[in-house]
């Protein structure tokens, strides 16, 4: 990477809990600008909790979250989104009773300039042609793959500094999964968006990232670049 490596997101020593049950314990994650980094883990390992903590939807009991050099640990969610974090989450889905177009416009919540919004919409239509054909259709009537595309497009329309993708391959047919990961790679390589990919599908996730973390029972048990990860014993764990 020839780009000057700048630290975009720095989560350090993060603890969260659900009631009295601890969820994340001493989790530290570092993301450099321009990288694609995956967070791997089994169901219930704490991946989604980590995403929600970064977004401020789950309170941090201890530790800090630094984004673009600013301490955002106590910020509310909408402020973090305005600062340039976006999430595409397959599980959270879309606004099912609204049209695809309204979904995209709502996604661009912080774009107030109508001219810029029109431009961005055009860009989205060229990069996600599936959606252009479905603009006036209610999001709830889309297929699973189209819905995932919409979830990604809704986030990407903002040109975020950090795009968190929460299990984009969830519940999709293998051929659609390939398409989703092609989009992930394109966003990272061509559009230079920093991506944090949270996945269960380790093999696919590693194929598009340059660094990774493995999370288990709320703790990071491994971190390193993709090559080391691919050969690590942790991936052989049948739970993964």
């Amino acid at each position: 990477m020839s780009m000057e490596e700048m630290n975009l997101l720095n989560v350090s020593g993060l603890y969260t809990s659900y009631g009295r049950i601890p969820m994340l314990m001493n989790v530290s994650v570092e993301l450099n600008e321009g990288c694609a980094c995956c967070v791997l883990g089994a169901n219930g390992a704490g991946k989604s909790t980590l995403v929600k903590a970064i977004l401020g939807m789950v309170k941090a009991d201890q530790g800090s979250i630094i984004f673009k050099g600013q301490d955002i640990t106590s910020w509310s969610t909408y402020k973090r989104i305005a600062a340039g974090i976006q999430v595409a989450s397959a599980a959270t889905g879309t606004f099912t009773k609204m049209s695809v177009e309204t979904n995209l416009k709502l996604g661009a919540y912080n774009i107030n300039d109508p001219k810029l919004l029109a431009e961005r919409l055009e860009e989205i239509y060229t990069s996600f042609p599936v959606l252009k054909a479905r603009l006036n259709q209610k999001a709830g009537t889309l297929s699973g793959g189209e819905r995932t595309m919409l979830a990604i497009a809704r986030a990407v329309i903002n040109k975020p500094s950090l795009l968190i993708m929460d299990e984009p391959s969830l519940g999709l047919a293998p051929i659609v999964v390939d398409e989703v990961f092609r989009i992930v790679r394109r966003l990272n390589k061509n559009e230079k968006i920093t991506i944090m990919l949270v996945e269960q599908n380790a093999k696919k996730a590693l194929s598009v990232s340059n660094a990774g973390y493995i999370i288990q029972k709320g703790q990071i048990i491994f971190s390193g670049d993709t090559e080391t990860l691919k050969n690590s014993e942790f991936l052989e764990n049948p739970v993964m």
Binding site: L55, M57, Y78, I81, V87, G93, F95, G107, Y109
Partner: peptide, 11 residues
């Protein structure tokens, strides 16, 4: 319609 997504959207 979807409170969690609304939060994530920046509402």
């Amino acid at each position: 319609q979807n409170k969690e997504l609304a939060l994530m959207t920046g509402v």
